[in-house]
Design a protein around this nucleic acid. Structure first.
Lengths: 341, 341
DNA sequence: TTGAAAGCGCTACCAA
DNA sequence: TTGGTAGCGCTTTCAA
């Protein structure tokens, strides 16, 4: 049986209360006594029992404010599912979640939503921040006011946030390059970018181009088009590019616009064109089934949600010196056989 | 705040002890009273608090006997790491692990080791069973004696084991076929089998062949060789096959023998040959770095170990009717860029 | 068949 | 600056 506070108290000839105060530096203990108790605890190999601690702290609920750009977004629906499952697993510890959803990528709107969620008596803020200096500033204000802030799925640099839970976008770009390299070392690639101003996508493209330059010099990027995350725009753009650049045999879709792109490709009957894209959403499975996508690189949204809540909880119960600054979920490559028997 | 036993007791005008006995069917409660208490609990939406329960049960340690063919095996070293991390996370709940390691695949030896581990006062047995009727019989005996048995990494059919934690080997064979199909729809494949009598490998080959037949008719299996999990044997066999079958441009390694196979290939200078294999062990990373492997399909050993301990714990604290019969870890595809920046 | 009460290990509050 | 004690929710034991 592990060492308990009670045992330390007996050994040190003080009360359990004093031991508790000493070990947690709550003050009100004579420095000399505190040192002695600390030494004894160290010596006996004391490790607080987290279950007892949790039970004792049950009264204090911990509420996580979760702010996500998730309206009508299947990726974030998965993420929320993960968060809610984690919440269920931690319910007995008193964990609660207040979810605020928004749509689109407007920093001003996000600032408003942040205010809204802060008004709901939360203990921790977890959000997917937009890459904007106003948001960064707001986050630092919140942290300064004493609240912990966690970033999910997308990080924001130069702030005092506690921890980022998400993937490495540069790496996911490299993976795309590697997959294309495996399929065809002489590939002629059309890149379909969703929105260049999104950090995630620019990082992917950076990783992609770096890897091609360094390791697959035979691969040629024919063109890069921007579809503004819109399927119809993607459809038009890809159709035109395919018509005018018959050498294209590979399409790399960096953001949304997957359905539109695939539609344009399947109408273009001249040759086989492989598609590499991201995530597993809406029609991904169907497109694999029809052979329109060759590979997709997934961000594990469910895991992101689950781990985010888990991390918030960990920080809440003990914000020790060496907590994780980053929890990186692996980029998972999926092919047709990942989905079908 | 959630409903507690105390509240139910007050409402029902009985003591907390009676409520506990009634809800858990511990006996010694008048059937009529028990029904009434049950109804009230149901009505109030009672859900026992797992933290309090755990604290209360702290005295009873739970010891998992873990029997693995892990001597000098890096794959299982990872698995053990996962199990130990899970144990550390559950230490405060009183979880202990007794590890017994063995080497090789001899059922008789495994029977002995099972006896050895049973003598150590364990509450639960978790093992990687060999696919042998004697082992199956032994497992059923153990289960009949009242102990729960879990299978890790490799299942054994037709037994009363509680839960299998591992991957789907048929699927991992299908994935190999899919990857090869992406790289070259006309591939001429040499299959290097480790040991045909291992269920895992025969299942992989089954999945592989099924998928090729159904979906990649252009792929041709030139030959299947058996290297008995031995690198030197693999080296000899592959070297000879490459010499005599110059059309081979793809090698699918189903079990061990990766280093030997790669060595033979790199000595064979005539053309580019892609390699698809399993797991991430010993020299995998190095071989990727040198470009000798194109893709590997990983079983997530760490996760297997972690989830195994977690599942044992879940079953131990409440063996409800609908526990999971299987925990399937995903087969994870890795390529060069999964390992290097 | 039931009630009462003593823990499990930790926190927090009040009194000294 | 300390000690004492009452919980947190559940289990278990002893008496009644």
């Amino acid at each position: 049986m592990a060492v308990t506070i009670k045992e330390i108290a007996e050994y040190a000839n003080v009360s359990r209360g004093t031991v508790d105060r000493a070990l947690h530096g709550r003050g009100g203990v004579k420095p000399e006594v505190e040192r002695r108790i600390r030494a004894i605890a160290e010596n006996m190999g004391y490790k607080p029992n987290s279950v007892a601690k949790a039970l004792s702290n049950l009264k204090k609920k911990m509420t996580i404010g979760l702010l996500l750009p998730s309206v009508k977004n299947l990726f974030f629906a998965d993420l929320i599912r993960g968060a809610m499952d984690a919440k269920k697993a931690l319910e007995d510890y008193g964990v609660e979640i207040k979810l605020v959803e928004m749509r689109g990528y407007d920093p001003e709107e996000q600032l408003e939503k942040i205010e809204e969620i802060l008004n709901q008596k939360i203990d921790i803020l977890a959000l997917t921040p937009f890459d904007d200096p106003r948001i960064a500033k707001k986050i630092d204000e919140i942290v300064k006011s004493g609240m912990k802030v966690f970033t999910i799925n997308s990080d924001i640099h130069g702030t005092q946030r506690c921890c980022y839970i998400g993937t490495d976008f540069v790496n996911s770009g490299k993976l795309a390059a590697g997959l294309i390299g495996l399929m065809n070392r002489q590939a002629k690639v059309l890149v379909v970018n969703g929105s260049p101003q999104l950090l995630s996508q620019s990082q992917r493209i950076k990783g992609f181009l770096d890897t091609i330059k360094g390791r697959y010099p035979g691969i040629h990027v024919v063109d890069v088009v921007v579809c503004n995350e819109n399927d119809y725009r993607a459809y038009d753009l890809v159709r035109e590019k395919l018509k005018n650049n018959i050498e294209i045999d590979m399409v790399y879709i960096v953001g949304e616009g997957i359905c539109g792109t695939c539609q344009a490709i399947s109408e273009f009957q001249r040759k086989r064109i492989d598609v590499v894209c991201y995530d597993d959403v809406a029609h991904t499975k169907e497109l694999f089934y029809e052979g329109k996508i060759s590979a997709t690189i997934c961000q594990q949204p469910y895991q992101q949600g689950y781990h985010a809540v888990q991390q918030c909880f960990n920080w809440f119960i003990e914000a020790s010196d060496q907590m994780k600054d980053t929890v990186l979920l692996e980029n998972v490559i999926k092919i047709r056989e990942s989905f079908f028997e």
